[in-house]
Amino acid sequence: MTTTRTGVLAAEVADAAMACAARGWHVFPLQPRDKRPLSQFTDWEAHATTDPARIRAFWERGPAFNVAVACGPSGLIVVDLDTPKPGETPPPEWALPGVNEGADVLAVLCERHGEAFPTDTFTVTTRRRGGMHLYFTPPPGNELRNTSGRYRTGLGWLIDTRACGGYVVAPGSYVDLPDGAGPYRIVNDVPPAPLPAWLARLLTAPHQVPSLGANSDAGTVADLPAYVQAALKGEAARVADAVTGGRNHALNKAAYNLGRLTGAGALDHETAAAVLFEAAVVHFGPTRADVTPAEARATIRSALAAGARNPRTITRGNPA
C-alpha cells in the first residue's frame, strides 16, 4: 500500500472516503496532497458517489488520493472559515480590532445579528491553523450556491460557502500547497445541523449583477433587455461560483455564451467583458490554484471572440 511523506496511507484515505459515504455524502478523488480534482474527474459533481464498491475499487489502487465531498448531491452547505495568506490584510470594512481570520468575522456577524456562534454542528479543522469547515443542511426547497468572502455576495472577509456546484476537502485528507500544509480533521463529530435561519437569509438576499467601472462607456446593465440581463447574471454567477480545478473552464464557458449574444448584436463586447472580469476577481490570487488578471483577460477575450463567431438566433417570440 502506498504512503506519502507524511505517513498518510492510501488505505487511510480510502477509509475516510468510506466514512463520508456512510454519512450519505457523495465523494470523489482529488490529486494527492492537493485540493484539485483528478483530470478525469472534470465532471466531478456527476461522478461523485456513495457506492462502497466504487470507492474501494478506486482508492485502494493508490496512490493516496485526497477525498472531496460534493456538497450539492450530499445535501450540504459548508461554511469555510479561512485564515489570511501571508501578507494578506483585511479590507476596510473588516479592519476591526480582534478580527484576524474567518472565525472572527463570523463572530462579528453573530454579534450584529444577535445570534450565537454556530458550534453545535459537524466541524472539521483545515490545513492552516485557525481554519474550519462548519457543515450544515440547507433550507428545504432552497438551492443555495457557492459564495466567496472576496465578493460582495459573500458573508464577509475569509468566509466562503460551498453548496450546489461546490465541494470541500474531506476529513482524513492531507493538503500540502505553498500557502499552507496540514491535515483535515474532525473536531466535532455530530450530525450537520440545519443552516441557521439568519445565515440562510444573508445567503439568499437579492444580489446584483457586477456593475461596470465608472470610466466604462459601455452603458449599464440596467439599460439592457431583460433576457440579456438574465444571461449576464447567470454567467457571472457561473464564474463567481466556480471551484478550484474548474475556474478557467467556467470562465471560458461563460464568455463563450455571452459572446454568442454579442455576435447576435444583443450585447456589446465591453459590457460582457467587464461583467465577466469583475465576476472573476474572486479567484485572483498568488498560488497555482488561483487565477491571475492576465489569464482572466486572455480567456475572456478569446472565448468572447469564439462565441461571437457562432451567434445566437434571437426571435421576438423566443428571446431567450
Rank of each mutant, 00 (worst) to 15 (best):
G259S: 07
L177Y: 08
R56T: 07
D80W: 01
S173C: 04
P32Q: 03
G156P: 01
Q208C: 15
A21R: 03
G234W: 03
H26E: 05
R260P: 05
H249Q: 15
T4Y: 13
A280L: 08
T121K: 04
P118L: 03
V99K: 06
N146L: 00
D217F: 13
I55K: 05
Y227D: 12
T315W: 04
E45H: 13
A250C: 08
H47P: 06
A57L: 04
N252P: 10
D189Q: 04
G213K: 06
G245M: 10
E12P: 09
T262V: 15
E88A: 15
A214W: 05
D80F: 01
R301A: 15
D34C: 08
A95M: 13
R309Y: 10
R238L: 15
E60V: 11
G156F: 09
A279E: 07
G246I: 00
A19D: 07
T313G: 01
L134W: 00
I314E: 11
V175E: 04
G246H: 11
A274R: 04
A274Y: 00
A236K: 03
N310C: 14
T244D: 06
A11P: 10
G263H: 03
N318E: 15
T4K: 09
G317C: 12
T3H: 13
A16K: 10
W157V: 08
E45L: 04
L9S: 15
F277R: 05
R5S: 11
A22C: 04
T161G: 02
A254R: 08
T83S: 09
G182D: 00
Y151N: 14
N188G: 08
R185M: 13
E270K: 13
R56L: 10
V291W: 06
G307H: 10
Y227T: 02
V105K: 04
I314T: 08
L261Q: 01
F65T: 10
Y184H: 06
D268K: 11
